[in-house]
């Protein structure tokens, strides 16, 4: 019987950031500059604050982009904060960012890193 190696990552958090359509790239760039490895962007549609802004709400697009980034717990606060400012979320209607603690994740991990940080097989 052959055994196969399976390494899961722990201490992972997920940052989800919802912003207006077309703004994701700059925010992902800010997150990557701060050490995030990858990002997934998908499209959505939604509003909330927009309706409460009156005519000014026209300046807020109802089409949204949703970024999800998986980050290590040690870097999460730093990236969370960088993304908040890159997305200018201190503006009404600009969007929201939130953090979810994940139990585990699994993906490709370079062999030399497993050897370096992983437990001996």
């Amino acid at each position: 019987m052959t055994t196969r190696d399976f390494t899961v990552l722990t201490d992972v958090s997920m940052i989800t950031c919802i912003i207006q359509r077309g703004k994701a790239d700059a925010i992902v760039q800010a997150a990557q500059d701060a050490g995030a490895q990858g990002a997934t962007i998908y499209y959505g549609y939604g509003s909330g604050v927009r309706e409460r802004l009156g005519l000014l709400g026209l300046a807020v697009d109802v089409e949204k982009e949703i970024i999800t980034i998986l980050v290590a717990d040690d870097q999460v606060d730093r990236i969370f904060e960088r993304m908040y400012f890159a997305a200018e979320l201190d503006l009404p209607g600009a969007g929201i960012i939130y953090l979810t603690k994940l139990e585990k994740a699994a993906t490709y991990i370079p062999r030399e890193i497993i050897e370096k940080v992983g437990r001996a097989p």
Binding site: R52, L53, L56, A59, P92, G93
Partner: peptide, 13 residues
């Protein structure tokens, strides 16, 4: 409804 401040209006618009 939310009343946006003057600086916010500028940054939104």
């Amino acid at each position: 409804s939310i009343a946006a401040g003057r600086g916010d209006i500028y940054r939104l618009l």
